[in-house]
């Protein structure tokens, strides 16, 4: 039987075969609950992984494309050195744009630390220059050397010092999210295999009777496989729906790059959890098939 035909046969089922196996009681309910709980967790692991991926991408992009130059000089030389910095940047390949921050912008930056009413004009505040790189980027070391020569008070800060560990952490978090998904699938498979094995063992007398009247092991296994696959699918659909509802209720971050506030799915990502019930059904199918083969082989 080809795989599509096998899937069709599994979905359509055989009403006669479905009836020969008695209701499997708690193992079937355990399968529904396990699949539901695991699908719920899988939705969160997926959301976490996608959110971590988004944050890593945003931070990595910002790391690669933005930098700040701090110009520290006596007040009478500050404007001159700032001009020199902007000239150097204007001639540097890989720099898309550069501009000196206005006094108001610098005040806004310092306000969270020093409060409002900051006498900026009376303080020797360095001038900040915002640099945006092209996609190709610039040679940071070469730029540092030129700045040292043209504007000795200018220091290039490419944000790498603090952005790089955060990007690495976000990337790891993304990997851990995917690893969590795999572990959830593995745990689901183990639970369903245990439940199916228990149901098969509990029905040993039924299996003996079916064999007595000429049932092939494939027929017996199929009756259990279909039952547990559909239970896994049903439980996973419920768990996925609850998980998606819970994720939808999480506060959104708008266009920001916050992590905890940006865990909601965005755009096409809302369709990704729909794969979870299908995966749960596949896991249920494979786990029950393995358990059925193992148990039936053990029953002479």
């Amino acid at each position: 039987m080809t795989p599509p035909a096998r899937i069709a046969a599994l979905v359509m089922g055989d009403p006669q075969a479905d009836r020969v196996v008695p209701p499997t009681g708690w193992p079937a309910r355990l399968t529904v609950f396990t699949a539901g709980a695991m699908a719920f967790l899988a939705v969160f692991a997926l959301a976490l992984s996608l959110a971590a991926g988004r944050v890593a991408d945003i931070w990595a992009d910002a790391l690669a494309r933005t930098a700040t130059i701090r110009v520290s000089a006596p007040t009478d030389e500050l404007a001159l050195q700032t001009r020199a910095v902007l000239e150097v940047l204007g001639q540097t390949p890989g720099v898309a744009s550069a501009r000196a921050l206005t006094a108001e912008e610098q005040r806004d930056l310092l306000e969270p630390w020093f409060g409002d009413g900051l006498p900026l004009d009376d303080l020797p505040i360095p001038q900040l220059v915002e640099v945006t790189a092209t996609d190709e980027g610039y040679d940071a070391e070469g730029l540092r050397q030129r700045l040292t020569a043209e504007a000795p008070g200018a220091v290039l800060d490419d944000h790498g010092r603090w952005r790089r560990p955060l990007v690495a952490a976000a990337s790891r978090l993304r990997l851990m999210g995917w690893a969590a998904l795999l572990l959830i699938l593995g745990a689901t498979a183990a639970m369903i295999a245990l439940a199916a094995g228990s149901a098969l063992a509990a029905n040993e007398q039924v299996i003996r009777t079916l064999r007595l009247v000429g049932a092939k092991d494939g027929y017996i296994a199929q009756a259990f496989i279909r039952r547990f696959t559909l239970r896994a699918l049903g439980g996973a659909v419920i768990g996925m729906a609850l998980g998606m509802a819970a994720v939808a209720l999480m506060p959104g971050a708008g266009a920001g790059e916050g992590f905890l506030t940006g865990i909601r799915f965005r755009g096409f990502e809302w369709f990704l959890p729909l794969a979870i019930p299908a995966l749960a059904a596949l896991v249920g199918y494979l786990a029950t098939r393995a358990a059925a083969r193992d148990t039936l082989r053990g029953m002479r």
Partner: peptide, 21 residues
């Protein structure tokens, strides 16, 4: 005898037909 107790007498007698497809 070895019957399936959840099936009726008719269904038990028909069991060999069902399992042979």
């Amino acid at each position: 005898c070895q019957f399936l107790d959840h099936l009726s007498v008719t269904d038990n007698i028909a069991l060999p037909l069902a399992v042979s497809g």
